[in-house]
Amino acid sequence: MTAVRAVRAASRTGRTLLALWLVLPLVPLLLWAFADRWTFPAVLPQEWGTRGAEEALAAGAGGAFLTSTLLGAVVALLATPLGAMAGRALASRQVPAGTAVLAVLLSPLALPPFAVALGLDVLLLRLGVPAVGGVVVLLVVAALPYTTLTMRAAYAAHDRGFEDEARVLGATRWQTVRSVQLPLVAPALAGAAFLAFLVGWSDYIVTVLVGGGRLTTLPLLVASAASATGSDAQVAILSLTSILPPVALLLVVGSLGRRRR
C-alpha cells in the first residue's frame, strides 16, 4: 500500500518537474511583455504597462509581423502542393529509384541552412536573382522535406479504392482529385501547410544571409532587440507576437484533424 503511494508521489513530482521544464522559459517572457519597470531582485514587475509594446511598434513590429506572415504564407502555398504531389508519387511506389528520390527530397533536413544559404548567396548575386525571391526559394526547399514526409504518410494510409470507386461512378480524373482525394487528405494538407508556414515564419539565418536587408521579419527584430541591452520588455513582446500566431494555427489545425477522424 505504501509502495503504491510512494510510486504515485514520485510520478506526481516527476510530472510537475516536466511541466515546469516546458513552461518555465515562457514565464519571464509573459511577465516582461507587460512590465514597465522590473528591477533586480524583484520577483514580479514593479510597474505594469505597455512600454514594451510601444517600443516594439516603434521598431517596426507591425510591418515585420506582416512580412513574416506573408513569407510563411508564400512558403506554405508553394511547398504544400509540391510536397503533396511528391508525397503522392512516392506513396504510389511508382517512382523509379524511389528511395534515392526521397533521400534527395529530405536532404535539406540534413544540411545546415546557413551552409546552403551561404553557398547560394554568391550565386544568386551573380545571377541577379532578387533577394526576396532567393529567400522564398531557399525556404521552400527547406520546407519541402516536411510537406513531402507528411503527405507521403497521408497518401500511404489513403485508400486508393475510394478513387477507383469515384472513377467507376463517372468522375473524371480531376473531379476525383477535387471531390474525393483532396477532402480525404485535407487534415494532412493542413498539417503540411502548417509546418511549411513555420519554416517561413521562424527563419532567421536565410533571411539575414540571402535577404540582404530587403526583408525585415519578426525574428530579425527579436534578434536585434535581444542583442541590445535594456530592451527586455520589447524582446518579450516581440517574442510573444512570434509565438501566438503559430500556436493559434496549431490549435486550428489540430481541431480540424480531430473532427475529421
Binding site: 485508400d159 475510394f162 470507386e165 461512378l169 477532402p183 480525404l184 485535407a186
Partner: peptide, 12 residues
Amino acid sequence: AMVFQRPLLFPH
C-alpha cells in the same frame, strides 16, 4: 459501376 468488398463510402 462497381461495388467492392469494402463499402468505400466517401467518409466526408
